[in-house]
Design a protein around this nucleic acid. Structure first.
Lengths: 143, 143
DNA sequence: ACATAATGATACTTATATTGTATCATTTAT
DNA sequence: ATAAATGATACAATATAAGTATCATTATGT
């Protein structure tokens, strides 16, 4: 059970990179080469981030993406929601199908308490938190 | 992102059932019919629980499984570890492969803090917690 | 002794989710 | 016009989860 899947991981990398470029437009070509990851995959990720307003796309030659929000305004929990949907730690493997305890499942009731703490913790983490924490910058990372 | 996958869900159902049978031996045939789930799948689950000492198997005709531990001694976090391995919320999607921030990944460092709370919360939940919480028993569930 | 009914071990198959690729249309700078 | 970017979307490959099948072994009951 991981919090960060590949889409979210790439999104974080790309967004952190864009934070450093501030108002500049960056292309998926550049970042894909820079991070040595799949460009079409990164494109899909940024398209999604564009659709939800985290970044803004600029079409045409010399186009690309730039941030719509500041690092303080982008939270990890938002990225999780964008790429994985709402957090439902307590979600049942057969919810809505045949689980007979659907209303008052004792397991779910317990896990929902955990979920609240978990979400509260996640809400504290923004891109800024992450960037501030970096010892080795994404630039140094390349070497 | 869910905590309870199907294996763990079935394990909880079966173990809760066995708690009520106390020292009695119960068969996978019986429980599979009772819960209307796959018998071979449930067998695999109970075999695993046997291997790690949560239940004890009794071979031969009239054989089956019985609990080795009390409801107070079986924790949700143990079941998660048994069926999903160690909890690593902070696990990187490419850990050990190519992640250049492996040592000091700022994302991981943040998530590890969340992980600690999460695990601490999970450690509080035992089978007894769950059983005590039940409004509708697993028996009533069948109707 | 023998049939029955259970688990032990393990390989195989199916289903689903994740990850990645390909293509073509559209847009814009030069 | 051409080049270089994104938009939209369908397709493919891979990984994980879920489920099935089989045969050996063990113990019970007659």
């Amino acid at each position: 059970m991981k919090i960060i899947n590949r889409e979210i991981g790439y999104a974080i990398k790309a967004l952190c990179f864009m934070v450093k470029e501030k108002e500049q437009i960056v292309t998926t070509s550049y970042m894909a080469t820079y991070f040595n990851i799949s460009r079409p995959f990164l494109r899909k990720i940024l398209q999604k981030l564009n659709q939800v307003g985290v970044v803004e796309s600029c079409k045409g030659k010399r186009g690309g993406f730039k941030l719509s929000l500041s690092a303080e305004q982008i939270f990890l929990i938002d990225l999780i929601k964008i790429f994985q949907g709402p957090i439902q730690l307590s979600g049942c493997y057969d919810r809505g199908q045949k689980c007979p305890l659907i209303e008052d499942c004792p397991v779910r009731l317990e896990i929902e308490k955990i979920e609240q703490n978990f979400i509260a913790d996640l809400k504290k983490i923004s891109l800024k938190t992450i960037i501030d924490r970096e010892k080795y910058s994404l630039v140094q990372e390349k070497q």
